[in-house]
Amino acid sequence: MSSVCLSIKNMTMAYGDFVIQRDLDFTINRSDIFIIMGGSGCGKSTLLMHLIGLQSPVKGQVFYGTESLWEADINVRQRILRRTGVLFQSGALLSSMTLAENIALPLSQHTKLGAMRIRNIVSYKLALVGLAGFEDYYPSEISGGMQKRAGLARAMALDPEILYFDEPSAGLDPISAKLLDDLIRSLRDNLGSTIVMVTHELASIFAIGTNSVFLDAETKTMIAGGSPKLLLAESTDPKVIRFLTRGEMEKHNSHNTTIQGHNAL
């Protein structure tokens, strides 16, 4: 099951002249739970924007399978992106629509399904995320965690092959965050979708991540990659270790590493 789903080739991201990250080169396999991690301001969310077609790279390519996202014309790009779903940080539900209307929106736009069928699918998706019965609620009437789950239901509306998450556990209590992690994992297991997640929540990273890329703000490129657990066990890069241990490893390590760590800052 390790066929390549998404590959990023030699990509440079920039706002005008200001380079965010350069020389990004990695692949995401089918059924991975792929973590994009790094400190604040390193360009994690910008990378996500490039993957979901909201921002184009200055240099390099994003391949979905064998198709290049940014060299394709707009119709092809939309067809590629139809196979993806995105959960934004705050859910990004449209506030003027009920949850049911939010989830039905992509279904009614992109498929020829009848109203009855769409209603069934909406109820099913809401039940999947544990919100059965909340069809007629407006986003402002439910809690933040529920909004996030409803956003997930909308992201899954079209049965995407790839699901993107931007900081899924931000703003959730540890228990809700764990439940969301479990949900993400069981969706991956049962639907076989690929998950790409931007997060710096260590608990999630170790609990569900199967592969990862570590972006560094200072050198403006990726400095590590691979399974997060292996990374913690085997990485020698002080920045990566500091990140994955919340900086607590320094106390145990030699004086030398501490100095390096500080210099790195």
């Binding site: 099913y124 039940a127 999947l128 544990g130 919100l131 059965a132 019965g133 909340f134 069809e135 007629d136 609620y137 949900l183 069981s186 969706l187 297991d189 049962n190 639907l191 076989g192």
Partner: peptide
């Protein structure tokens, strides 16, 4: 198939909130 069973389990873990219906 296992995947379907897993999803069905998810669907039926949280019972429908009947009082939530408008």
């Amino acid at each position: 198939p296992e995947g379907i069973q897993g999803l069905l389990k998810l669907v039926y873990t949280v019972p429908e909130r009947l009082d939530a219906k408008r």
